[in-house]
Design a protein around this nucleic acid. Structure first.
Lengths: 343, 343
DNA sequence: ATGTGGCTTGCAAACGTTTGAAATTTTTTG
DNA sequence: CAAAAAATTTCAAACGTTTGCAAGCCACAT
């Protein structure tokens, strides 16, 4: 591992000043044609790479953006990142992706690190622990700096910042309404962890839709999961053992919906004839499993793009600090086989 | 967006020198107790964050590592990243994740950017385009710097660097052997894009296993895909229309295997009774779809961990530069329902 | 009074680069 | 040939921080 070649090294070699080398490499017009060519050739030969660190220091800016997400291992999150990158990369920004694994400690550590590395903005999808704990001290210094902070996917009201979320409420509402329209009367809900905005919004959509159509909200039909496919197995088995078993299950995401389907079939029931299943996320796989899964689509990529645009307009957005930009994108129900007509 | 508070700002405020502030904030023993407390309190109050950029410059090191991958939107890749982080994060390294989207141009751009940002090592999972083009000029400067470079997942022989890959060959061999053991005689292969190491190694495992058991390798039974689930649909339909239709399909990954299953069922055949299906990746979902998918597991997390360890031992590894470290991890067949007994 | 030692603080250089202004060299012009 | 103009190069400062060394101050012993 050699020391990188610096402009000074080159200057020494050519018995000229660093300024000359710098200007030559940057094609500054006031540099002699021969000098320029010689220096450039030599720099190329020895593999000179401009030291961006020193430039960042000199210019007190970095053209880099922090993106903190709980996980990257799924379609939705990575679509968001893709969306941010699609808007910001062409403008020369670099993304600094941090994965918190749903841990508050890591999230806090990353915020500090990003601040310390002088990123010019932070996109934050709050971790589950942060949500549970409900304390946001780790964002205090972001506030003091008045650094652009945009909440993604999971909003936090207590902090004056931009946010882009999706309309979980209406997505869930539409899903349940659809189930009712196919004649289902006892619709169970595999809920996410309590307290998270996503979870509660979808839950609200579920209950309010039931109420609107005169169906009772039964506690027995609502069970928590942790979003993972495994966490749906036991709850689904429970639901199937009820005296009055449900005729439909609305999963908080596709994973639990798929887990539910597995259990339903293992117990000898059919999807959708005996029990309809609807998920949330419209993950790519949902169209290809059997039966294909009805699901609510979240426009992940678009979320990223909108968030990036908020960032780019931040000076204005910050001006009206008391009234930060909140964008809520619509979600869309995609009907497939798992919610077909009941028998 | 305020300017960050600097040590100089604090020094001015307290009419002392920057050195004093620096030492106070770093708990240097030679600083007066009162001075230290006052300065620390003030720094805390105004949200001072040490400028890591200047430190990186001063120390000519960054404790950051570049990780370049074609995609993050899948289980395997993100497990690799997780593995790298698990080893390197506790040692204070920061990961700089770059997603190339399988494009050479982006890969090249990211290599330059990382070099310029003075990362201390690069983990590279070569993009598909790079593989296709087969030119590696973008790595030249990495070589000149003799910067630790570790190939992940996809090896490249032409470059003297460490690598961690998995044993695609034996994984594929085991999968096909398993199919043969359940009585299958006409085993089709949904192959990946030609030329990629992963693709060709699995293909080799497939053909050599057939040969070993005296089965013919039939061109008609081998069709290319691009790893995506959609790309398996048309090829599978083709296979089913053959006069002598296959009794098993070995997919280059789980995605195409799932796509194949869908088409098989749509055409009225049963899995596994009429046609067995085996995938590759052991993605989490494969256990939960119906029928559950037999698949070859790749130890993504372990790949990341091993790669990180190579990096940490790099000084030694570099010494024997003519003979860099190549680690090949075993893959493991996970048998599930999709490859059950034929009728 | 003077020197000794301990405690505390300041000075200056360093990391690599850019850039306005000044200095030097070369070319042109009268 | 001298002076002015143009071309080219160098100087010095700046970005924010750390750190070896020098320096200041105070108390105490001689």
């Amino acid at each position: 591992m050699n020391k990188p070649v610096t402009i000074k090294d080159i200057a020494r070699k050519f018995r000229c000043s660093p300024s000359t080398v710098s200007r030559a490499l940057n094609n500054h017009p006031s540099i002699n044609e021969d000098t320029r060519r010689n220096l450039q050739e030599y720099a190329q030969k020895v593999g000179y790479q401009r030291n961006q660190v020193s430039l960042n220091l000199l210019n007190t800016k970095t053209a880099s953006i922090g993106v903190i997400v709980p996980t990257i291992n799924n379609y939705y999150e990575s679509a968001i990142i893709e969306g941010i990158d699609a808007v910001l990369h062409p403008l020369g920004y670099t993304l600094n992706i941090c994965v918190t694994n749903e841990q508050y400690l890591l999230e806090s550590e990353y915020v500090t690190k990003l601040l310390s590395n002088r990123v010019e903005g932070i996109f934050l999808s709050v971790s589950q622990e942060t949500y549970d704990f409900g304390h946001y001290e780790h964002l205090e210094n972001v506030g003091k700096r008045n650094l652009p902070l945009i909440f993604i996917d999971r909003d936090y009201e207590g902090f004056s910042a931009g946010s882009v979320t999706i309309d979980d409420y209406h997505g869930a509402f539409a899903a349940v309404e659809h189930l009712i329209s196919t004649g289902r009367k006892r619709i169970a809900h595999l809920k996410g962890p309590n307290g998270m905005a996503v979870t509660e919004q979808r839950f609200k959509g579920y209950t309010e839709c039931l109420t609107k159509y005169g169906l009772p909200v039964e506690e027995k039909l609502i069970i928590n999961t942790n979003f993972k496919v495994e966490s749906a197995l036991e709850p689904t088995a429970q639901l199937l053992q009820l005296e009055q078993r449900p005729d439909a299950i609305f999963g908080v995401n596709d994973q639990v919906a798929i887990g539910a389907m597995k259990v339903i079939r293992e117990k000898g029931w059919r999807v959708p004839e005996d029990i309809a299943v609807v998920g949330f996320d419209n993950s790519p796989i949902s169209a290809y499993i059997s039966p294909s899964l009805t699901s609510v689509a979240r426009p992940g990529r678009q979320i990223g793009e909108e968030a990036a645009r908020i960032f780019l307009n931040y000076p204005e957005a910050a001006a009206k600090k008391d009234n930060p930009v909140h964008i809520v994108l619509p979600s869309q129900l995609i009907v497939r086989d798992s919610s077909g007509k009941s028998k």
